[in-house]
């Protein structure tokens, strides 16, 4: 396959960026999108140019490091992570636009790499349980109803890649934040911090400069793990419940 790539190049966080055009040849349809970028970078290095910087780690769709907006879609046209997107999803001769996540809370560090530490601070605000855990406990020690376990697992699938923020027209982190809140708030282990968790995480999310939810639904469409839009509804319900309880005290 022969492709034309238009890639966002930005030397540093405070530098101006622009789209640069590159031609890549000899691409196999079985390559992943990141392997295609590796091919481009090898070529750039041989030509003595600066390779394109992009985030990646596990390359098997579970770590949440890769973060590319391909042709205007976070993670590209397939519902998966960019590393699991394969070149067979494109046609020979295509022009492909590659851009970084766009959000005020995710500033560009270089080229396609953005700073997602705002997510870490949201997790630090309450996305955990305060309990000494040690080794994995005996599974029947704390009974969890099957529907609750399924609900928690569905939300625990979030890998924190930030595709929801990248896809949201408001740069909102609602889907990410709600996934973690729903995951922990439904379980007995998360119950002691149920109210403070949602209040503090939402407050941190606002403080980081993420936008609000207008229920456009773009986040749930982009999510490689299929976190549903009603997750946000669940977070709103938890937030209202916690606010009422805090006022009653």
């Amino acid at each position: 396959m022969k492709l034309t790539l238009r890639v966002w190049r930005q030397r540093a966080a405070d530098a101006d960026g622009a789209m640069s055009t590159y031609e890549v040849d000899g691409i196999s349809p079985d390559m992943s999108f990141l392997e295609m970028l590796d091919t481009l970078n090898e070529d750039l290095i041989l030509r003595g140019e600066d390779p394109v910087a992009f985030d990646h780690d596990c390359r098997e769709g579970i770590c949440g490091a890769c973060s590319l907006v391909v042709n205007g879609d976070a993670h590209g046209p397939e519902r998966t992570t960019t590393c699991q997107l394969h070149m067979r999803s494109f046609q020979d001769g295509d022009t492909i636009d590659v851009e970084p996540w766009r959000a005020a809370a995710f500033p560009v560090i270089k080229d396609l790499v953005v700073d997602r530490s705002a997510f870490d601070r949201i997790i630090q605000a309450g996305g955990y349980i305060t309990a000494p855990t040690g080794a994995a406990p005996e599974a029947h020690a704390t009974p969890v109803p099957k529907p609750d376990a399924d609900f928690a697992f569905e939300h625990a699938e979030c890998i924190g890649c930030g595709a929801c923020v990248a896809a949201c027209p408001n740069g909102a982190a609602m889907l990410f934040t709600s996934a973690k809140i729903n995951h922990l708030n439904v379980l007995p282990q998360g119950a002691p911090e149920r109210e403070t968790r949602v209040l503090e995480m939402v407050a941190q999310m606002d403080e980081e400069g993420f936008g609000g939810c207008t229920l456009a639904g773009e986040c749930a469409t982009a999510c490689p793990k299929g976190i549903p839009l009603v997750s946000i509804t669940g977070m709103n319900r938890e937030w209202l419940r916690a606010t009422r309880k805090a006022a009653g005290r």
Binding site: D97, R102, A103, G171, G211, A216
Partner: peptide, 28 residues
Amino acid sequence: QLSRRDIRARPAKYVHRRPRASYATRTM
């Protein structure tokens, strides 16, 4: 106030544009 926050949260637009969300949502 919410719109101001939303617009501030997304200062840079994507070069590759496509219509997002339904017509009713975009015209709120």
